[in-house]
């Protein structure tokens, strides 16, 4: 049942022009960022040869690309997740889904997986850019894998938060704006952190950016992975609870 709902969700994304437009815009922005980084790399290449342990193309081109991708997708994911449940409620298609022999957990997981399939497609397209460099140079595949894992986890976290916000309202625009607000807050929650302040480590731990940047640097720390997994499962459980409450009190 979960896969059936996921397939429908994934397919329905491509039935609207929005998914295609989002894919195209992201590719254009990231391609521009990618070529700019390559340009910078060529300009400083001569100086790099003189340095001991000089950063490679993975550090100077691929990591910045993934960083830009994460910021762009922080703005774009709310647009993808906004309609997951809010549109079902607004169009009243949810009543047929709830009366079908399918549990709320299956509905939520199916919708989430559908969005993850789209995110994976997006990630596959993004990863083509760094992979194309392997034809001309040597890449640090460990760092590349860690970066891709980080990008996948952060997008999965964005999607889970977006799914939950979408369950709170029947207005997709409100769902998108509130998701963006929440993600931005969690992204920069440690921005004013003076590191000496009481509880600074809590703000650091809560920050999405903090955990993502560790993975971007190639540090595959289980604490970061667990943070993302907790973040994702937490929002999924909240969504299930929210829908269950709405169903019984509607």
């Amino acid at each position: 049942m979960i896969m059936l709902i996921a397939k429908r969700e994934f397919r329905s994304m491509f039935l609207s022009p929005m998914a295609w437009v989002i894919l195209a815009i992201i590719q254009v922005i990231l391609a521009w960022s990618f070529f700019s980084s390559i340009d910078v790399f060529f300009n400083i290449q001569a100086e790099l040869t003189t340095l001991k342990n000089a950063p490679g193309v993975t550090d100077l081109v691929i990591s910045p690309l993934f960083e830009v991708a994460s910021i762009v997708l922080l703005m774009v994911t709310p647009l993808l997740s906004m309609r997951l449940l809010s549109e079902e409620k607004r169009n009243r298609t949810i009543s047929l889904l709830l009366s079908a022999p399918v549990s709320i957990t299956e509905i939520v997981l199916g919708k989430y997986l559908g969005l993850l399939f789209f995110i994976t497609t997006l990630l596959a397209l993004i990863s083509l850019m760094p992979l194309s460099l392997s034809m001309g140079t040597e890449l640090d595949f460990y760092k590349l894998s860690a970066g891709l894992t980080g990008l996948f986890l952060i997008l999965a976290a964005f999607s889970a938060a977006g799914l939950y916000m979408s369950s709170l309202t029947d207005n997709p625009v409100i769902a998108a704006i509130s998701t963006f607000g929440l993600l931005l807050l969690l992204w920069m929650i440690n921005i004013s952190n003076a590191s000496t302040a009481e509880g600074s480590h809590i703000l650091n731990y809560l920050s999405l950016n903090m955990h993502f940047s560790m993975l971007l640097r190639g540090v595959l720390d289980t604490r970061d992975i667990i943070y993302f997994l907790l973040f994702i499962s937490g929002f999924i459980v909240l969504t299930i609870r929210q829908l269950e409450t709405q169903r019984l009190q509607s």
């Binding site: 329905s12 039935l15 609207s16 169009n91 009243r92 298609t93 009543s95 079908a100 022999p101 549990s103």
Partner: peptide, 22 residues
Amino acid sequence: SSTIAQHRTLGYLPESVAFYEA
């Protein structure tokens, strides 16, 4: 929720039926 499987034997037509338009 334990009765979900029972919904297989139910048919429901809501008052304002709506479907996925696309």
